[in-house]
Computed example of a mutant assay.
Amino acid sequence: MPYAKAADGSRIAYQTGGAGSPLLLLGGQANNRHWWDGIREDFHTVHRTVTLDYRGTGDSDKPDIPYSTIGFAEDAIAVLDDLGIEEAAVYGTSMGGRVAQWLAARFPDRVRTLVLGCTSPGGRHAVERSAQVRQSLVQPDPVAVRQALLELMYTPDYSATAPGPFNTLGDPSMPAYAKRRHLHASNKHDAWDALPDIGVPTLVVHGTEDLFNPAANAPLLAERIPGARLHLIPGARHAYFDEFRSTASPLVLDFLNAS
């Protein structure tokens, strides 16, 4: 397993696959590289994909220090540096979309094109999930929490018939403190003032039935980022890229190849 060294000395594990122009894939909060299992291959005909285990997850170091979406972006730059990649397309989903916002805004020379999936600008301008959704995720019964998360990610028909495993439900190997650090990092994200600084071609994608990160955030991002395109996938929940892979992957590929 290759590692990049972050600015604070933490080791960030990363993975590559395919061949072609580089595409950095950034997954969701408290998840590792497996978020992209079964999907990254869709891009390998024209892209060399790069994934990473966020600090606190997978094979990366897990320091018990404050995390932030800006810090995760800096870790991603360390990975690109270690690979000798000067510029990459970036596709971030959920918290990974928040990290991707900082990459494009703060490191514009490193990002060629940008796709933001099922994410939000954060801060007071974002549309927050409902109290009912929040309560469903803090129940004392872990089985009930997993079921609630599954329902937020996928439609009932899909979750009932898909063979699994479901790779978007969190990294089970994470220590509890790292989960809290990830939650705090995502909750504190606020890139609203930086979004107009994003100057690369940008596509915003969201499922219309996403309650985990409400779909109303998608037009906020698209209107705030100059020239951004918006595409809503009817009927999709938070894990649109997985359940609606046959729609989402070609959509993203077409955008990346045309930009």
Score class of each variant (00 low, 15 high):
residue 44 H to L: 09
residue 135 Q to T: 13
residue 29 Q to Y: 05
residue 11 R to F: 04
residue 113 T to W: 01
residue 51 T to F: 13
residue 92 G to E: 07
residue 42 D to Y: 09
residue 40 R to T: 03
residue 143 V to G: 13
residue 154 Y to G: 03
residue 225 I to W: 02
residue 192 W to L: 06
residue 50 V to Q: 00
residue 108 P to C: 06
residue 69 T to D: 06
residue 26 L to I: 08
residue 251 L to S: 05
residue 245 R to Y: 00
residue 136 S to I: 06
residue 8 D to Q: 08
residue 66 P to G: 10
residue 218 A to F: 12
residue 124 R to H: 03
residue 128 E to Q: 09
residue 221 L to D: 06
residue 189 H to P: 12
residue 9 G to R: 12
residue 54 Y to R: 11
residue 138 V to T: 15
residue 119 T to A: 06
residue 56 G to N: 11
residue 109 D to R: 14
residue 24 L to V: 12
residue 202 T to N: 03
residue 204 V to R: 08
residue 36 W to G: 08
residue 63 P to C: 08
residue 34 H to T: 12
residue 225 I to R: 01
residue 83 L to P: 02
residue 250 P to S: 10
residue 129 R to K: 01
residue 136 S to A: 13
residue 55 R to T: 03
residue 10 S to W: 11
residue 192 W to M: 10
residue 257 N to L: 15
residue 34 H to E: 11
residue 78 A to I: 09
residue 175 P to T: 10
residue 170 G to H: 03
residue 164 G to E: 05
residue 148 A to E: 01
residue 155 T to H: 08
residue 217 N to P: 10
residue 231 H to I: 04
residue 110 R to I: 12
residue 210 D to K: 15
residue 122 G to C: 13
residue 157 D to N: 07
residue 88 A to M: 14
residue 161 T to N: 11
residue 7 A to Y: 07
residue 207 G to I: 14
residue 217 N to L: 08
residue 176 A to Q: 07
residue 37 D to S: 04
residue 215 A to T: 15
residue 73 A to T: 06
residue 103 L to Y: 03
residue 186 S to Y: 09
residue 5 K to H: 15
residue 116 L to M: 05
residue 24 L to W: 08
residue 200 V to G: 00
residue 60 S to H: 03
residue 88 A to C: 15
residue 259 S to K: 07
residue 131 A to S: 01
residue 149 L to W: 04
residue 180 R to T: 02
residue 57 T to D: 01
residue 146 R to Q: 06
residue 136 S to T: 08
residue 58 G to K: 08
residue 242 D to R: 12
residue 23 L to R: 11
residue 53 D to L: 15
residue 208 T to V: 15
residue 33 R to H: 04
residue 242 D to Y: 15
residue 227 G to Y: 10
residue 17 G to Q: 06
residue 25 L to H: 03
